[in-house]
Amino acid sequence: MSATIHPETVLRELSDLWVSLGKETDPGQSSGVLRACTMTLMAVAEEAEDPSDVWSVMAMLMPEHPSRAIVIRFRQSVDREVSARVFSQCWMPFGHRRQICCEQIEISASDASLCDLPAVIVPLAVSDLPVILWCRGARLFELPDFALVAQIAHKLVLDSAAFADPAGILKRLAGRSQTDQILGDLAWTRLTRWRELVSQIFENRSYCARLPGVSQVKVEFGGERPPTSAYYMAAWLVDGLERAGAKPQVSWQPEPGASPGLTRVELAGANGDGLRVSIAMTADRERQTAQVHVDSLSNLAVFPLDNDYLLLREELSIPGRDPIYDRSLARAALLASGKK
């Protein structure tokens, strides 16, 4: 069985959609619809996933990152089948008379048709604007022809936490970061709150002046082996400490009974003297809570729970290269491979 789609047909349907949206506008209003676009945002997901999960994230992103959204849903099949439908999503910002609309294209494809997709996607991408690809599954990233789709994107965003082998995926990502393609890893994005808390402590000049004396970085995690987030965190801390003149040693500590992931980090001076900083993060159903200790002082910070929308929103706001991430990725891959 075989089915194909023609990009021109999809584009014509999009164009018709805009015409009909324009006609729907109240003729008494001079406002009409406003078409906004800052990028092509592509998501690849498993067909088995509930499509509303992906679309709801895309919809939430639209007000801040208006884009042409393309969702490609893959099913495991040897038939080379591709089909598409177009629709739009409009919203009326509170207190405004004009509605904002964004284009959305949903493509259904089989694994076997992956190699056919670039010819469809390239014409559908909005000219002169960046293409961001969000890969929602480890299996999709591992498909032999995935690189053909990935190469269309200026930035590829994935979640290394979904991969079974942390060292393996970090090594592959570090290799990819040497290319022109920009990478985003949601496992790294999840660390922003942690990293902000650390940075905030050292905004205070008196603590900052004590950084060269830090000799130990202890990373605690749930699960059997350190997750990618633990390697990233250690890499980032070591990088910062070295730039402050410290020569820290990293130790890894599993926390029995904790859910998989990073649970606590600690910075300390040699033999227990000097500065001692620790941050431990816990989460319940509503929020994350960070317990921060700096010497004898303690502080509590609360954050909303991470979700795909918040993480992706942060990644979309950094369209260019992120040298801090690139540096941390390179070091994290080394740490995960057992090299310093």
Binding site: T192, R195, E196, S199, D239, L241, R243, A244, I318, I324
Partner: peptide
Amino acid sequence: NPFQDPRRF
């Protein structure tokens, strides 16, 4: 402060 990250913080 070596931990600043103005792109994200």
